[in-house]
C-alpha cells in the first residue's frame, strides 16, 4: 500500500510542480495518472522514489516513510519500487539478460554485479520473467537490437526482477504504435493482477487509461482535480483537467482505431 501525503515540489526556479498532492493506493490497484504536459505527472512519480527530491510532504510505502530515509535506506527502499520508463531506458549496450539482472543491483554486492555472478535464484527468476514477457530467446541479444515493444517488455522484466511492492510507470506507451501500446498495457495490467501489485501509470492517452486502469487521478498544474472511477471521466471532468476541447471527436477517432485494429486482427486470424 502506498500513501502520498501533502506532497509538494518547488523547483529552484520557483516553479511549483506539485501542490499538496495526497492519495492512497491499496494493494493490487492500478491507477492511471492523467493531465496535460507540465501538470507534474512525471515529477510526482519521481518524487515517490526520490529520483526527484520532494520539498514537503511524505511518501509512505507500507508504513515506511520513504521521504525520511538516509541514502543507504533510500537505496533499500528503491529496490522495492520498480520503475518503467517512457523511452524504455534500457542500458543499450548491455545484453537483454544483463538489463533484467540489473533489477537485482540493490540486492547484490558490487563485486558480484561487476563480475556478473548473480545468485542462481536471480538468474532463474530472470529467465522466468523473460519467458513471461515473451522474450526467452532474446536473452543474449544486445538491448539496442530490439524493437520498441520488445524493449519495453525488457523494461517491465527489469522492474519485476526487483521483486517490487509497487510499480511506477512513466508514459509506458508514448514511444509505441497504438497496437503495441495496447499489448504493453494489457501485459502490465495482467502482471499487476497476478502479483497483487499496486501501480501508478503516468499516461497521456486518456482512452488507454480508461480502458486499462481501475482508478484515475487527474492532475492540473500540480493539483489533484479528479480522483475516481474511470467511468466517471466525462467531458466536464476532462475539461476540468485539460481545458476546453472537442472531446467527442477524440473518442470517435479512437473508436475507429479500435475497429481498425479488430479488423486487422480478424484478417490476420483468417490468414492463419
Amino acid at each position: 500500500m502506498l500513501t502520498v501525503d501533502a506532497l509538494t515540489k518547488t523547483y529552484k526556479t520557483g516553479d511549483k510542480a506539485l501542490r499538496a498532492v495526497g492519495f492512497t493506493v491499496p494493494k493490487g490497484q492500478v491507477v492511471g495518472l492523467i493531465g496535460p504536459s507540465g501538470a507534474g505527472k512525471s515529477t510526482l512519480i519521481r518524487c515517490i522514489n526520490r529520483l526527484v527530491e520532494p520539498t514537503e510532504g511524505r511518501v509512505l510505502l507500507n508504513d515506511l516513510d520513504v521521504t525520511a530515509l538516509p541514502a543507504a535506506g533510500l537505496r533499500r527502499a528503491r529496490r522495492r519500487i520498480g520503475m518503467i520508463f517512457q523511452e524504455y531506458a534500457l542500458v543499450e549496450r548491455l545484453t537483454v539478460m544483463e538489463n533484467v539482472l540489473s533489477g537485482r543491483l540493490g540486492y547484490v554486492g558490487f563485486w558480484r554485479s561487476f563480475l556478473r555472478r548473480f545468485p542462481e535464484t536471480d538468474i532463474e527468476n530472470a529467465f522466468r520473467l523473460l519467458d513471461r514477457v515473451g522474450l526467452m530467446s532474446h536473452a543474449d541479444k544486445r538491448a539496442d537490437a530490439l524493437s520498441g515493444g520488445q524493449r519495453q517488455r525488457v523494461g517491465i522484466a527489469r522492474a519485476l526482477a526487483q521483486d517490487p511492492e509497487l510499480l511506477l510507470i512513466d508514459e509506458p506507451t508514448a514511444s509505441l504504435d497504438p497496437k503495441t501500446s495496447r499489448q504493453i498495457m494489457r501485459l502490465i495490467v495482467e502482471i499487476c493482477a497476478e502479483r497483487g501489485l499496486p501501480a501508478i501509470i503516468n499516461i497521456h492517452d486518456v482512452l488507454l487509461a480508461q480502458q486499462f486502469t481501475q482508478r484515475i487521478i487527474g492532475l492540473r498544474a500540480g493539483e489533484v482535480v479528479f480522483d475516481g472511477d474511470p467511468a466517471a471521466l466525462d467531458e466536464n471532468v476532462l475539461t476540468r483537467i485539460y481545458g476546453e476541447e472537442d472531446w467527442t471527436a477524440m473518442r470517435r477517432a479512437a473508436e475507429e482505431d479500435d475497429a481498425a485494429e479488430r479488423d486487422a486482427a480478424e484478417r490476420m486470424a483468417g490468414m492463419v
Binding site: 528503491r78 534500457l90 542500458v91 549496450r93 540489473s102 537485482r104 554485479s113 523494461g155
Partner: peptide, 24 residues
C-alpha cells in the same frame, strides 16, 4: 534516462558507474 533507470533499481554509486555509465 539510462542512468536514472539504474538508479531507480536501488543500485549503489559504484554499481551506477559500472552498469549505467561504463557501458555507455
Amino acid at each position: 534516462t539510462q542512468i536514472e533507470a539504474i538508479e531507480a533499481t536501488g543500485a549503489s554509486g559504484a554499481q551506477l558507474l559500472t552498469y549505467g555509465y561504463w557501458p555507455q
